[in-house]
Amino acid sequence: MMIWQQLQSLVGSYPLALRGLGTTVAVSLIGLLAGSLVGFAMGMLRAGGNRPVRLVIGAWVDLIRGTPFLVQIFLIFFILPEAGIELEAFTAGVIALSNLAACFICEIVAGGIGAVPKGQVEAALASGLSRWQRMRHVVLPQAMRIILPPLVGQYVLLIKDSSVVSAIGLTDLTRVGWLVVQRVPNGLLVFGIIGLGYFIVCYPLLAIARRIERRMGAAHAEVQL
């Protein structure tokens, strides 16, 4: 039966699938890590820096949030070589994803810092704490509780966005599906399995985000309709 042949062929693609999964994990991990570090720094500057800094960061973040990730990847992959920087697909993908991550995380962090009640800042100010001391002892610890749920949600979005690097030929999990479906023309089966792969990674993170949000004490009463 056709289906058995297809399944056999799929099992034969196991090494390729593993490579794809590894690439997705690597790109996502590096992208999320670098993006978080840069994003936090950007977010703190955006929330408390001086006006020109805030405007510049705001403009860049707007640029990245206003254009499709696919176009950003194309820009990095095709244009940087013209400027003399040779890039392979993996590096371009990681740079693009890190940049995307940093911009979105910047907004989440800035929002969290801004959500800390003004009274807290005033109390710290009134005790004579310097700006950095205020941030470190009073604002950031409280901001983290607000930042954590949307941050985890953003991580899920970024892991899914990593699939777009397949467009520049990087053999990630999605591209594995695209390659395999050429030989095994059963789109439902092939991409069903690919989807399952992403699901196994992303669903737990989504569940964690939901649990964190609930523990933070969502103020909304469950309305019984």
Binding site: G119, E122, A123, H137
Partner: peptide
Amino acid sequence: IGFVFQQFNLYPH
């Protein structure tokens, strides 16, 4: 200068 607020503003953490 010590300042005591109407809303206390103690650090909750």
